[in-house]
Structure formats: structure tokens, C-alpha cells
Simulated scan of single mutants.
Amino acid sequence: MRKGERGTTVVYADRFTPEDERRRARETGEEAQAIPFLKRFTVFNAAQCENLPEEIAAAAPPPDSGLIEPRVEALIAATGIDFRIGGNRAFYVPAHDYVMVPPPQAFFEPINWHRTALHECSHASGAPRRLNRDLSGSFGSKKYAFEELVAEISAAFCCAALGIVPTVRHADYIGSWLEVMREDNRAVVRAASQASKAADWLLAHLPDDDAASGDAAIANDGRVAA
């Protein structure tokens, strides 16, 4: 198991007949009574593990040709972020500084892969050796909500600059986290400021020609995509 991974709890249900009950049933001629039981396990996807034997190691299928925009692929590679494609959920692990995103074909509409990938890379931009944001918030906390705002607004800026038009609305996701921070009426302004820095950091890794067109797109449309 790779350090930093979190398992999923599963429950196994069955019945068993104790030996004493079997003996009682034999002696009385009655039917033995089985006892129901539940057993809990924590399991991990093979994609979350390292150094598995070849016969059980899971290799993520390569992305179908043409599903990833070349500029987005080049940008991610140029950032130097440890970006992994596989598994069934997208996340960034601050403790080990890597991003995991399922392959594009796992998305109902593959165009949305780019939004998710840029969202997770925006989280990674906050690592101490990059923009050094506070990534210590636990799920549901205000710190966590604020970082989600930063990452999603940054992804919206990047998508606009790169001409990516996801079918999932950035504004809906942003609004869901604003609900967590509803008493802070300046949360979106503060998050947008940090998101602008995150998007600038990511887009700075575009090849020169693409970077120039990206700057123009942000200048012409600096709004959060809806």
C-alpha cells in the first residue's frame, strides 16, 4: 500500500454454526441454528498499492487517443508535478505531493477530465516548494472549503485560457463550497486572488506561443466560468 492512501470500509455478512450447536443438534435431533455475523475490512484498490506481484498488479489503461488536449498534456508535464492517471477518483496528496486522476474514458464526458486535472494541479500548486498555501484543512472544514474554492476558480481560469469548455459548471461547484463559508462574504474574493496566482503559475508552463494566447484570454475574460 502506498503511504498516504486511504482505504474503503467494506462489510462481509454471513452465518456460521458453532460446534457446540452442531453437537446439541446431533444429540437432540433438532436442526442446528446458524448465527448471523458481520465482519468489517478496510480494502484498497490495486492502483493505490506499490510493489504488487505482477499477477495482481493493476495497470491503468492508457488514455484513449485524442481524449487529452495536447496543450493541457504538455502544460501538466512541464509543471513537474507528479501526475498519475488511474484509479476511480481524483485527488491530490499534499503529504506525498502527487496528483491522481482517473483516465478520460472514465468520465461520462471526457472533456471534463481537463477541468478535473487542472483542479487537482491547482491544489498541487499550493505545495510548500511552489506557492506555499495552507493545505492542512480536513474535509468539511473552512480551510478545506477555501482551498476547494481556490482550486476550482483556478481551474476555471485555466480552462478559459486554454479554450476548454467543460459541461460541468464551475459555478455550481464553487457555490457548494461557498455555502460552507457563507458567513464570510469576502471568501470568493480572497479565493479568486489565490486562484489567480495558481492559474498564473500553471499557465506559465505553457510553450511560449500558447502562453501568449492564454494571457490574452484571461485579459479578455477574467470572470469565473459559469
Rank of each mutant, 00 (worst) to 15 (best):
V101K: 06
M1G: 14
E73T: 08
L178H: 03
S138T: 14
W113V: 09
M181R: 02
V99R: 03
V10F: 07
E5Q: 13
A77F: 01
C158D: 02
E148P: 01
F157Y: 10
E55L: 14
S213D: 15
N185K: 12
P61I: 07
A127I: 03
R190G: 04
A145E: 01
H119D: 00
D172W: 06
E54W: 10
G87T: 04
T8M: 11
H205Y: 10
H114Q: 03
Y173L: 07
D215W: 13
M181C: 02
P70M: 10
I85F: 03
C159T: 00
D200A: 15
G163R: 11
T79R: 02
V43C: 10
L135N: 01
P166C: 05
R15F: 14
V165F: 11
A95L: 15
T79P: 05
I81L: 04
I68Y: 06
R182D: 14
F83P: 07
S196Q: 12
D221T: 10
P36Y: 14
G80Y: 04
I153D: 02
K197A: 08
I81H: 02
L162C: 10
M1Y: 11
I81M: 09
Q105M: 08
I68K: 11
P128T: 13
V165I: 09
I153L: 02
G7D: 08
G7L: 06
R71N: 15
R130L: 02
H123T: 05
S193I: 09
D97E: 15
I218K: 07
I153S: 01
V180E: 04
V188H: 10
M1A: 15
R26T: 15
M181V: 01
N185A: 13
I85C: 03
R190V: 02
E147R: 07
A32S: 14
A155R: 05
G66Y: 11
R130N: 03
W201E: 06
S65F: 13
A57L: 05
K3D: 10
E5K: 12
V99C: 08
R169I: 04
P128D: 06
A78H: 06
W201V: 02
I153Q: 04
P70W: 08
L162D: 00
P63Y: 06
N45A: 15
E120M: 01
A155W: 02
P63I: 04
E54D: 12
W113C: 03
C158R: 05
E120R: 01
G175H: 04
S125I: 00
W113Y: 12
N51W: 06
S213I: 14
I56H: 04
V99Y: 03
A145C: 10
D215P: 08
F107Y: 14
A216H: 13
R115F: 10
Y92N: 06
A60W: 00
A155N: 01
K39Y: 13
E19K: 15
H96G: 07
A77C: 07
A226P: 09
R24G: 11
P94Y: 03
Q48H: 02
V11Y: 15
S176V: 02
A219L: 12
S125F: 00
I164L: 13
A187Q: 01
F41I: 12
V10Q: 09
S154P: 03
A192H: 00
I111C: 09
H205L: 09
F107Q: 05
F107T: 08
H170C: 09
V101L: 07
F41E: 12
N185S: 14
